[in-house]
Design a protein around this nucleic acid. Structure first.
Length: 474
RNA sequence: GUCCCCAUCGUCUAGCCCGGCCUAGGACAUUGCCCUUUCAAGGCAGUAACACGGGUUCAAAUCCCGUUGGGGACGCCA
C-alpha cells in the first residue's frame, strides 16, 4: 500500500489516556509498516473545554511513548476559514441549511422524546424553512438523505449497513460560527489526504453520517478501521475508577515506555503466541488482519509483568538514566550527582530480575548508594538479636581480614566461618543481609557485599552488633 | 426507546474467513514442586474456556438463525 496517510486526532480536553494512546499507536504502526505518513491533528473546536496545557501534555505523552509524527500538530482552530468556505458552498447547493432551534428547545424535545420512548433524533423542523435568511444566531445543519441505506466497509469490523432513516441532520456549524466534529473531521481528512481513518469503534455510528458529508463535498471516502474499545475490570468503559488512565501516570509509576507500548498493542492485536516484541518486530508484523473485533479489559498485572520483562532484558547501563528521577524522588541521591557508571551498572544488574518497576529498582538501589540503611522492623527483630551475634562478630572479623573483597573471596570466607562456627550458611547470610540492606531479601549477599564495598559493609555490620548489644542492656 | 458492534480459561489471546489435524494452544494471574544464603528470576507440573438454544452437515469453537449477556451511538462534545 503506497502513500498511506493516517492521523491521530485527539481533542485536548484531557491528558493522553490509555485508550487514546492505543489509537495513536495503531495509527503509528500502520503508517510505519506501510512507510506512510503519520499526522498529529488537534481537534480543539470545543473552545470551552480545550486547553493549551492538554495539547502540551498529549504531545509529551506521545513523545514519551516514542510515537513520532511526520506532520503537525495541525490545529482545527487555525482552520476555521476552511470550514466556513466549505460550509458556504454546502448551503448554496442546498446540502445544508440554517436551523433556528435553540439549544434549550432542542434539549427539551430530547427529554420529552426520551420520556415517551421515542427517537432522540432531530425532528427536521427547520429543514424546509423558506426564509433561510443569513441566520444571525442560527446553526447550520447538514441535510442527510432520509431514504436508502449506507454501507460502511470497515477493515476490522467488515460490512455494516445503516438505514439512512436513522441518520439525523446533524449540526455542522454552531450558532457562534464554530464548526463541529463530524464536519471538521471530514473536511480535514479530505484536505490532509488521509487514506485510512483509524479510530475507536465508538465512532462507527458516526461513519455513515460522515460518508454523506464526503459525497456532498464531492470526495471519495477513505478506508476505515474501527478499533475495539478498552474496558475496565468491570467491563465498563475504562475510567479513573479503574486506576491510572493517563499515560504519564505510568511513567511516574516506573514503567518503561516500551513495556506500555507492548502491552497496549497486544490489547486487540496478536501475532501467534508471541508476547514480547521489539518495536521493529511490531512495525514488521502489524496488520489489521490480526486485530480482533471485541473489546478488551485492561489488565494492570500483565502490564506489570511485561514491564518486569523489559527491565530484565535491558542492558544495565541503559537503565541508569531512566532510574535517576526515581532515585531523586526517593531522596536517595541529590539532583545532578555524578556516578561511577560502571559501578552503578553492576549494582543495577543485580537488581534487574527483582524489580518490576523503575521505582522498585530505585528503592533497592538505596542500600547500595546510601551511607546507611534503615532496618525493616520485622527483619531486625528476627535476625538482629543475640542468637546471631556470634555469627555477625565472626564474619565481621574474617571480612576485615580479607584483602580480596570480591564476591568469590567473600563467599570463601562465609564458607570458612560457617564451618568454624558449625552453623548453616543461612544463619550467617541472613543477619548480614539485614545488617547491610535492612531487609530479609536482596540479591546474593556476596555480590551485595562486594558492591557496597569493604568499608561500608564493615561499618554496617558493626552498627548491627552495636544495636544488638544496646538492645540487650535496654 | 431506536440503531450499531461484540461474544474461546478470571484476564489478554491462538484457532473461526477456507468446517475434520481441537481429548481447544500460548501468555498474565493463581496452586504445587525443583533450583537456592534470602527474595526474585528460571524450569517443571496443575486448576481453568468454545454464553445458551435451534438448524445445515457424515462431521461445527469454526457456517446460518434466534435468545441472552456486554459495549457503543443517538450533543450547538469529540
Amino acid at each position: 500500500m503506497n502513500n498511506v496517510r493516517v492521523r491521530f486526532a485527539p481533542s485536548p480536553t484531557g491528558h493522553l489516556h490509555i485508550g487514546g494512546a492505543r489509537t495513536a499507536l495503531f495509527n503509528w504502526l500502520f503508517a510505519r509498516h506501510n512507510k506512510g505518513i503519520f499526522i498529529l491533528r488537534i481537534e480543539d473546536t470545543d473552545r470551552t473545554r480545550s486547553t493549551e496545557e492538554y495539547i502540551d501534555s498529549i504531545m509529551e505523552g506521545m513523545k514519551w511513548l516514542n510515537l513520532d509524527w511526520d506532520e503537525g500538530p495541525y490545529r482545527q482552530t487555525d482552520r476555521f476559514d476552511v470550514y466556513r468556505s466549505y460550509c458556504k458552498k454546502l448551503i448554496e447547493e442546498g446540502k445544508a441549511y440554517y436551523c433556528y432551534c435553540s439549544p434549550e428547545e432542542l434539549e427539551q424535545r430530547r427529554q420529552k422524546a426520551l420520556a415517551q420512548g421515542k427517537s432522540l433524533r432531530y425532528d427536521g423542523r427547520c429543514r424546509n424553512l423558506k426564509k433561510q435568511g443569513q441566520g444571525e444566531n442560527a446553526a447550520v445543519r447538514f441535510r442527510m438523505p432520509q431514504e436508502g441505506q449506507t454501507v460502511v466497509n470497515d477493515l476490522i469490523k467488515g460490512e455494516t449497513v445503516f438505514d439512512n432513516s436513522q441518520l439525523d441532520d446533524l449540526i455542522i456549524m454552531r450558532s457562534d460560527g464554530t464548526p463541529t466534529y463530524n464536519y471538521t473531521v471530514v473536511v480535514d481528512d479530505v484536505d490532509m489526504n488521509i487514506t485510512h481513518v483509524i479510530r475507536g469503534d465508538d465512532h462507527l455510528n458516526n461513519t455513515p453520517k460522515q460518508i454523506h458529508i464526503y459525497s456532498a463535498l464531492g470526495y471519495k471516502v477513505p478506508l476505515f478501521a474501527h478499533l475495539p474499545m478498552i474496558l475496565g475490570s468491570d467491563k465498563a468503559r475504562l475510567s479513573k475508577r479503574h486506576g491510572a488512565t493517563s499515560v504519564m501516570a505510568y511513567k511516574d509509576m516506573g514503567y518503561l515506555p516500551e513495556a506500555l507500548v507492548n502491552y497496549l498493542v497486544r490489547l486487540g492485536w496478536s501475532y501467534g503466541d508471541q508476547e514480547v516484541f521489539s518495536i521493529n518486530e511490531l512495525i514488521e508484523h502489524f496488520s489489521f488482519d490480526n486485530v480482533g473485533k471485541s473489546a478488551a479489559v485492561f489488565n494492570p498485572e500483565k502490564l506489570l509483568w511485561l514491564n518486569s520483562q523489559y527491565i530484565i532484558r535491558a542492558e544495565p547501563e541503559n537503565l541508569i538514566e531512566p532510574v535517576k528521577p526515581f532515585l531523586i524522588k526517593e531522596k536517595i541521591i541529590e539532583e545532578g550527582r555524578a556516578f561511577n557508571e560502571e559501578w552503578l551498572s553492576k549494582a543495577i544488574s543485580t537488581l534487574q530480575e527483582r524489580s518490576k518497576t523503575l521505582l522498585e529498582l530505585a528503592q533497592s538501589l538505596g542500600y547500595y548508594i546510601g551511607n546507611d540503611v534503615e532496618y525493616v522492623v520485622k527483619a531486625k527483630e528476627k535476625f538482629l538479636n543475640e542468637k546471631y551475634i556470634a555469627n555477625l562478630t565472626g564474619i565481621k572479623e574474617a571480612l576485615a581480614a580479607l584483602d580480596n573483597f570480591t564476591s568469590t573471596g567473600i563467599e570463601k570466607v562465609f564458607a570458612e566461618i560457617a564451618d568454624k562456627l558449625n552453623t548453616k550458611l543461612g544463619n550467617i547470610a541472613q543477619p548480614v543481609r539485614v545488617a547491610i540492606t535492612g531487609r530479609t531479601e536482596s540479591p546474593g549477599i556476596f555480590e551485595v557485599l562486594e558492591i557496597v564495598g569493604k568499608e561500608k559493609s564493615l561499618k554496617r555490620i558493626d552498627r548491627a552488633i552495636k544495636e544488638i548489644n544496646e538492645g540487650k542492656k535496654g
